[in-house]
Each structure stands twice: as C-alpha cells, then as structure tokens.
Amino acid sequence: MSTSELPQSSIPLLTTVTAYRGWRQKAFDERKSVGFVATMGALHDGHLSLVQRSLAENDLTVLSIFVNPAQFAPHEDLSTYPRTLPGDLALLQAQRVSVPATDIVRTPSAVFLPSVHEMYPSGISQDTAAQKGTFVEVKGYGHQMEGASRPTFFRGVATVVTKLFNVIQPTNTYFGQKDIQQALLLRRMCKDLLLSHPDPDHVHILPTTRDLNDALALSSRNSYLTPSERAIAPTLFAALQKAESAWIRGGTTEECIKQATIFIDEVKTRPAAQGVDMRLDYIQMNDSETFDVLGASSGKNYAGENAIILSGALWLGKTRLIDNIVIGDLNHIVQ
C-alpha cells in the first residue's frame, strides 16, 4: 500500500524501515522509552489492553500491523485473514492514558505498516521448502502444543518478530497470554540471541482479555464464527476450567484432561450445538519452561518448579480456537 492510499490518521504511519529508523533515532536522542505491540491488525479489546499498558509504562508507544505470510501454512487462511486498517486506526486514535501527577496525556506515537517486500526483501513463500533467505527457529521448543498442529508456525513467528525487534528496537514489548507458547518462545529467543531491545525481562505477557458476558478469549479469528458457532465458542475455556478444577481437587493429568473431554462431548449433545461441526484438536498440560507434556500420572503434588500450562485447541466449523489457563506461580510469566 502506497502512502497516498493510506487512510487519514492523526498518528504517524510509517511504511518503510528507513522511515521508522529515522523516527526511532529521534526517540533515542531524546532518551525516550518506546513500548511496542506487534499485531496483524483486525484489532479488538485484547490488542487495546496491550496498547493501554504500553502507554502507561512508556514515553512513546508503537504498534505494528503486518499480516505475516511466513506463519501461515499453504492451506491456512492468509488470503482471508481480516484486514481492517481504517477501523484499526480509528480505535488507536481513541486510545489515551493520563500520566499520574502530571498534565501529560499519552496517545499512540506511531504505527509501522510495512509491505511484504519490506519485511522479506528476498521474497517469501508459504511453502517452507521453497523459501530462500534467512529464517529464525527456536529449536526444541516449537514442536509441542500449538507446534504439533502447526509445525511451521513458530518458525514464521520467530522470524518476523526478530525482524520487527530489529526495526522497532523497543524498550518494552507486550504480548497476550492467549498465545502463551508464542510469548514464552519469544522471550526465550530474546535471551538466546542476546537482544538488548528488548531484553528478555522486558517482554511482558499480559492476561488474556475475555468477553465480559461469556469469557470467550478475544481473537481476530472470532469474526469467522457463524452465530450458532459463536454461541458455543466458550466451550473450550469452560472445558479447561473443568480440568483445572479436577487438578485442584487432586486429580492426575489424565483425569483432568478426561474431565475436559467429557465436558466437550456433553456440549456436542446439546440442542445449541446441533448442526455445528465441533472437533477437539488437543488438550494438554505442559511445563511452562520446557513445554514438555506432563506424565499421565502427574497430580497436584507435581514436583516441577515451573508453572503448568493447561491449553487446548478446538475447531468450530472452519475456525480454530485456542485458549489456556496457567496453573501455579505466574510471577515469571505474567509481568
């Protein structure tokens, strides 16, 4: 999209690396902190909660909007992924945070809107076998949980976020817990690559934003749901809550997951679910550091030192929903 085609915006819209780096150098010169929220657009209240946190904690806040081809497999929804730039910019222009004990009101400072060519100068294909150029992979941590169902996903995420961090050079960056494996992988990536902007301690993971009426995790892909699918979409989170309750009562991993799957099977028999294609992808309990699957006989007395990620994915028609609950000490995960 050329500059002349961009919607009107009171927030500076930067479409090239060169333009952004000029903007960033000024922030460096003025010793101002920069908060960063990476998105693929189709913004909702979950994204805006990250923006609000960044506004509260940083002098300047930058948001990127880029639908990343490298994290979509050839059969996935790249071409149909929602693109709502005018509405996204309207939402961002309404965001503001007052700084306590001052007259300062912070609003988003810039939006980075790169083209595919700008982000992938060597070109990009959704077919990993046809890709040429430099890519980033977090070895040993991307094949579990989401990675089992989407084997090229985290390679694409790690690559594009490394590029974004190289461009944006944020002081702090913010991700949502809904994509907990992704957020933890990116924190590990910052540590392994010795990044300074951001360093691992400044990769912040914020609690999942949920619908106030039924607790469905907010997601851009929720817009794909039909009315009948949307009515039963909270099933996944409710199933995870069943598993969590079983764990708290002293159940084993196997028993907890069984409680969740029994609940999903029961929902399928309800009148509201008739005609809806509901398919469970997975429910797992994993160590939050290693992502290793907990043994079937693990229970409340689990000896691991790390928090446990209870997560799952559920298909409703053509829409794949994900969600998670973190069991244990959140201090090293949610900052």
Score class of each variant (00 low, 15 high):
residue 299 G to M: 11
residue 1 M to D: 13
residue 190 C to Y: 03
residue 286 N to A: 10
residue 97 V to K: 11
residue 282 Y to Q: 08
residue 164 L to E: 05
residue 330 L to N: 11
residue 275 G to N: 11
residue 293 V to T: 15
residue 36 F to P: 05
residue 12 P to V: 09
residue 46 G to R: 04
residue 27 A to G: 00
residue 216 L to R: 08
residue 267 V to P: 01
residue 24 R to W: 07
residue 218 L to N: 05
residue 60 L to H: 03
residue 319 T to A: 14
residue 315 W to P: 03
residue 174 Y to Q: 09
residue 50 L to S: 06
residue 120 Y to T: 09
residue 103 D to K: 14
residue 262 I to D: 14
residue 170 P to K: 08
residue 333 I to P: 04
residue 316 L to A: 09
residue 75 H to G: 03
residue 298 S to H: 14
residue 222 N to D: 13
residue 247 W to G: 00
residue 302 Y to M: 10
residue 38 A to N: 13
residue 22 G to A: 10
residue 34 V to D: 01
residue 85 L to P: 09
residue 321 L to N: 06
residue 189 M to K: 00
residue 116 V to I: 15
residue 119 M to P: 12
residue 18 T to S: 15
residue 257 I to N: 03
residue 102 T to W: 10
residue 187 R to Y: 09
residue 201 D to H: 05
residue 17 V to R: 13
residue 183 A to R: 02
residue 59 D to C: 07
residue 94 A to C: 11
residue 115 S to F: 10
residue 293 V to K: 12
residue 147 G to V: 07
residue 235 T to C: 14
residue 174 Y to D: 01
residue 299 G to K: 04
residue 276 V to C: 13
residue 3 T to D: 15
residue 153 F to P: 02
residue 158 A to W: 02
residue 21 R to E: 15
residue 301 N to A: 14
residue 245 S to H: 12
residue 111 V to N: 08
residue 246 A to L: 08
residue 195 L to I: 01
residue 47 H to P: 04
residue 103 D to Q: 15
residue 138 V to D: 01
residue 243 A to M: 10
residue 62 V to R: 04
residue 260 A to M: 09
residue 253 T to G: 01
residue 305 E to G: 15
residue 273 A to D: 08
residue 10 S to H: 13
residue 102 T to E: 11
residue 316 L to H: 03
residue 70 A to P: 02
residue 106 R to S: 06
residue 219 S to W: 02
residue 61 T to S: 13
residue 153 F to Y: 14
residue 89 L to W: 06
residue 293 V to D: 12
residue 101 A to L: 13
residue 126 Q to S: 10
residue 21 R to F: 00
residue 36 F to Q: 02
residue 319 T to C: 14
residue 87 G to P: 03
residue 225 L to K: 12
residue 34 V to E: 00
residue 72 F to M: 07
residue 272 A to K: 13
residue 181 Q to H: 03
residue 208 T to A: 11
residue 65 I to W: 06
residue 257 I to C: 08
residue 70 A to L: 15
residue 84 T to W: 04
residue 258 K to M: 05
residue 155 R to G: 05
residue 162 T to I: 04
residue 254 E to I: 00
residue 196 S to D: 13
residue 133 G to A: 10
residue 171 T to G: 01
residue 240 L to K: 02
residue 285 M to A: 15
residue 59 D to S: 11
residue 207 P to M: 14
residue 93 Q to V: 06
residue 162 T to Q: 13
